[in-house]
C-alpha cells in the first residue's frame, strides 16, 4: 500500500519548475510531491533535459536561418568602412585586370593573302577571341611611309583599324582586341584613302 502523496505533477508545472518560473505559491505542493514520487522525478529530469537542450540549440538555428543581409546590419561602423574599402580595391583590381586582359592574351600570328575573286578558297583562318598579329607582304604594292589597316565584318561594318608602318617590305600590326567567330575582311589603304588590297579572314 502506498502513502498518499497527491496527484502527479502537471506537465506545465514540470516545465515551469525546469525553467524556474513556477510561482512561489505552487512551489510548496510541487516539491512535497516531488520528494516522494519517483515517477515525477523522472519526468522532471526528462523535462529539464528537453528544456536545456532546446535552450542550447535554439540560438544556433535562429542564427542559421537568418538571411545573410541581416547579419550585415549588425556589423559595427569600422567593419562597414573596411568592407567598403575592400570592395573598392577589388573593383579596381578587376578593372585593371580587364584592361590588361588583351595584352596578357596569347597573340596569334596571321599572314594574310589576297583573296578578292577567290573567296572561300584563300580565306586565312584565325582563332576567335585571341589577339592577332596581322602580317601583309607589300612586295607588289606601292610603297608608302604608312598604311591604314581596317577590319570589317561580313556586312562591311568596321570593327578595328590602325595605321601601320612598313618594315622590310611588310607590315606587321597587332590588333587590340579579339574577334568573335565569323567572316571578316582586312583592308589595306594608301595614306590617301585608296583601297589597295582586301584579305579574307575567317575567325573560328
Amino acid at each position: 500500500m502506498q502513502f498518499g502523496i497527491g496527484s502527479h505533477l502537471e506537465e506545465t508545472e514540470l516545465e515551469q519548475y525546469s525553467m524556474g518560473t513556477l510561482s512561489e505559491a505552487g512551489l510548496e505542493a510541487f516539491e512535497e510531491h516531488l520528494l516522494a514520487c519517483d515517477s515525477c522525478q523522472d519526468r522532471l529530469l526528462e523535462m529539464e533535459a528537453y528544456v536545456n537542450a532546446m535552450r542550447s540549440v535554439s540560438p544556433k538555428l535562429r542564427e542559421a536561418r537568418q538571411p545573410f543581409w541581416t547579419s550585415l546590419l549588425r556589423w559595427p561602423r569600422p567593419a562597414w568602412v573596411a568592407a567598403f574599402a575592400m570592395s573598392v580595391v577589388v573593383l579596381a583590381v578587376v578593372r585593371v585586370w580587364m584592361v590588361a586582359q588583351p595584352s596578357r592574351m596569347e597573340m596569334a600570328s596571321v599572314t594574310l593573302h589576297s583573296s578578292r575573286g577567290f573567296e572561300g578558297l584563300a580565306t586565312t583562318k584565325a582563332p576567335a577571341g585571341r589577339l592577332l598579329s596581322l602580317t601583309v607582304d607589300l612586295t607588289e604594292l606601292p610603297a608608302f611611309p604608312s598604311y591604314r589597316m581596317e577590319i570589317v565584318g561580313a556586312t562591311g561594318k568596321p570593327v578595328w583599324e590602325a595605321v601601320a608602318h612598313p618594315e622590310n617590305g611588310r607590315i606587321t600590326e597587332p590588333t587590340t582586341k579579339g574577334l568573335a567567330a565569323g567572316q571578316y575582311y582586312v583592308r589595306l589603304y594608301a595614306p590617301g584613302g585608296a583601297l589597295l588590297r582586301e584579305f579574307s579572314l575567317g575567325i573560328e
Partner: peptide, 27 residues
C-alpha cells in the same frame, strides 16, 4: 540531447521554431 533537440527543431516549420524559441530561450 542537443542533437535530438536540433532534429526536433529542424523538423518543424520556421514559424513553429520561432514560437518554441521565444518560449524556451527568450522566456
Amino acid at each position: 540531447h542537443e542533437q535530438v533537440a536540433e532534429t526536433v527543431l529542424r523538423g518543424v516549420s520556421g514559424r513553429d521554431r520561432e514560437i518554441l524559441t521565444r518560449f524556451y530561450l527568450m522566456e
